[in-house]
């Protein structure tokens, strides 16, 4: 029940909204996040494993496939995060986000949990298509599509949270730093309306510039994170396959290493369209 409440708050942006960010911390319990990610991933894995259960002759092997999918989906995301985290953190430090290592980890975990929540919510649709389809290439491509949509949603969420964070810390810095002398100066010289309006204009311009810079920095950081996480993630997915289980092949925990993710997508497309 507690987990569900956390998930609910998470999806609403409860942990990444202005009030939570104001004190300079993204406060989400890491352990809860990991637990949620595992649970949601396992739910989607279960739906994926349904394909093997329905299309394989050997029920025992199919159940094994189901179990392995349930483990593999959360593993895919958490392992990818573990591997890319050092480089993601370095990137974030280079982009001067003022996020500590723990903060970065939490932020990324939040994004992954959102991603997995969307995946899990697509579960019933996947199950429906599994029930009615025996075309293996179609199911493969449908899964690629669902993962892509969920990934995009996670990314949008991350983008919004990061922008809020940068906007917040940017605003803080100008409140406490560079602009403090300006009002004092105004008082000591000619405190007339003209002067005041000039200061207001300057502050407005600086704020604008700062929010523009925040947007730019966010964009660069997100692109960097995205490329890194995407490359490692798709390779990780490839290493961990099979997730669905080819009806023409026996159960294997892992397949032999060959080819790569993109090639497989194009082969599946070719088989579906031929």
């Amino acid at each position: 029940m507690n987990l569900l409440r956390t998930l609910d708050a998470l999806l609403r942006g409860g942990y990444t909204d202005v009030e939570h960010i104001q004190d300079g911390k993204i406060q989400v319990p890491i352990r809860t996040l990991v637990r949620l990610a595992v649970l949601l991933g396992a739910t989607y894995g279960l739906m994926m494993g349904l394909f093997a259960l329905l299309s394989w002759d050997h029920t025992g092997a199919a159940l094994l496939q189901m179990l392995s999918s349930m483990v593999k989906v959360p593993l895919l995301f958490l392992l990818t995060l573990l591997i890319t985290f050092p480089s993601l953190y370095v990137l974030s430090a280079l982009a001067r986000t003022r996020l500590g290592a723990a903060q970065t980890a939490r932020l990324l975990l939040v994004a992954i949990t959102v991603d997995l929540a969307l995946l899990a919510s697509f579960g019933p649709i996947l199950a429906f298509f599994t029930l009615s389809t025996d075309s293996y290439p179609f199911m493969k491509l449908l899964n690629v599509l669902i993962f892509a949509i969920a990934g995009l949603a996670g990314l949008t969420f991350l983008n919004r949270a990061l922008r809020r964070w940068l906007g917040q810390t940017g605003a803080e810095s100008h409140e406490t730093g560079e602009l403090e002398p300006a009002p004092a100066e105004a008082e000591s010289k000619t405190p007339d309306a003209f002067h005041d309006s000039l200061i207001k204009k300057t502050v407005g311009l600086i704020e604008q510039r700062q929010s523009h810079l925040a947007t730019q920095r966010t964009r660069r950081l997100i692109v960097g994170w995205c490329v890194l996480f995407g490359i490692v993630g798709s390779q990780m997915g490839w290493v961990l396959r099979p997730f669905l289980g080819d009806p023409d092949q026996p159960f294997e925990l892992f397949r032999a290493r060959s080819s790569n993710f993109l090639e497989a997508v194009f082969t599946a497309l070719g088989r579906l369209l031929s």
Binding site: D8, L11, R12, V114, A117, L118, S121, F122, P124, I125, A153, T156, F157
Partner: peptide
């Protein structure tokens, strides 16, 4: 899915 999308 619609519920999660609305939340997001």
């Amino acid at each position: 899915s619609f519920y999660v999308i609305n939340n997001l």
